[in-house]
Amino acid sequence: MPAIPVTVLTGYLGAGKTTLLNRILSEPHGKRFAVIVNEFGEIGIDNDLVVGADEEVFEMNNGCICCTVRGDLIRIIGGLLKRKGGFDGIIIETTGLADPAPVAQTFFVDPEVAERTRLDAIVTVVDARHIAQRLADSHEAEEQVAFADVILLNKTDLADAEALEAVERRLRSMNPFARILRTERCAVGLDDVLGIGAFDLDRVLAAEPGFLSEDDHEHDQSVTSVSLAGTRPLDPAAFDLWFRTLIQLKGVDLLRYKGILAFAGSDRRTVVQGVHMLSDSANLGLWQGGAERVSRFVLIGRKLDADALSAGFAECAAR
């Protein structure tokens, strides 16, 4: 049975999440979506598969301090799976004040949800005029940008070009993975927000060019990204120890990370990605014959010590 793709829509209050949701549901795509909303009544579309969520965030009793999940999502998805006929996808709208981590972690931690669904992407809608202020005063707004696979920089018609450039630079420095799309009234093609496969390891590989961006970091912000790169092949045991220690000690502050790594003695590219302490990796695809084997590892998080990370990563090079 193919896993059902799940799209998470986040964004601060008033950014345009409901507009995007109504747009997705009203397009003539012939697909059937189950929609999990935090507030009934805002959806203008008649859909018998709209379910209200309670946003119950639970700590797992598994010794992992940052492992919180959305208990209501586990329950609702379990119930939806009992329905005859099924549906083509699930869309989860979160409240403006929601932290995306428990939502994302639910798809890795719960065995039934992990088996039957796959997290396709986190889509964050931001208001081009207000996002700078939101980032300054709201922890959740920062998380929503940090976790995004696609950022809709919305209401661009209401902001001037210079301000848009500045906002986009800021978003890019916080989250180098995300695709940033400028929109008015959330007008995007459905292919830009659905079927992204952002958590698939092979898509991490396909998105490699975007990895290279070395942006100017703003050191006054709390969520930052650190890009690590090295041309010497890595020692598997050394990297494993460094990485495991890192996610154990810094898992709470590490929001998302993706890497494409070259290990000594392997002709394959190793891809790693994760959320907090939950990581996933695989060996995918051969390195091209003549191409230089560069290991790249990008981390998004809080209180990231770029120098220490850089030194630790360099120490992993095979001798």
Partner: peptide, 8 residues
Amino acid sequence: LITLLQES
């Protein structure tokens, strides 16, 4: 009284 847990 026995309960079934989320944590396996």
